[in-house]
């Protein structure tokens, strides 16, 4: 139960940060990417703040033998740059530019109750499930 409360609290800190930063506001997000038009550089400050403090914090945290509530750190170990990473990231960038929401921006925005956010999240979940299905198919095809 303590674990779930802490997860809720971590989510809440993230959600408040996303909301006040402007990451959940598509008008602001798209303007950050619109250098040739109504450019708003605010999101560079979000990235600067988030990346700076995380890089610093991780240095201390990852020196520990294990996290407080688990036996190991669940860290990705791959370092190869493969086609799914490149193509997937490109497709994500295109979708982000079209809709103005990214996943981390849209989940907190659900709490505003705006119907547009629910439309985006529904399409996002459909995309995730479709990609998982396609990946299973291609794995089955390669192992068969």
């Amino acid at each position: 139960m303590l674990r779930l409360l802490l997860c809720y609290a971590i989510g809440l800190i993230f959600g408040v940060g996303i909301m006040i930063s402007g990451m959940a506001n598509p008008a602001k997000v798209i303007n950050f990417f619109d250098i040739a038009g109504t450019w708003d550089p605010s999101l560079a400050f979000v990235m600067g703040g988030a990346l700076g403090i995380t890089a610093l914090g991780y240095r201390f945290v990852l020196k520990r033998p294990a996290p407080k509530l688990d036996s190991v750190f669940h860290l990705p170990t791959r370092s190869d740059i493969d086609m799914p990473l490149v193509a997937g990231s490109a497709v994500f960038g295109v979708g982000w530019g079209i809709a103005g929401f990214c996943p981390g921006g849209a989940i907190p925005a659900l709490g505003t109750g705006r119907p547009e956010v629910f439309v985006f999240i529904a399409a996002l979940l459909a995309g995730i499930l479709t990609a998982k299905f396609l990946r299973r198919q291609s794995r089955a095809a390669t192992t068969a």
Partner: peptide
């Protein structure tokens, strides 16, 4: 369309 592409992209990426 954007939401669907984001879902596909972040899963493969």
């Amino acid at each position: 369309v954007g939401g669907f592409l984001v879902g596909i992209g972040v899963t493969f990426g």
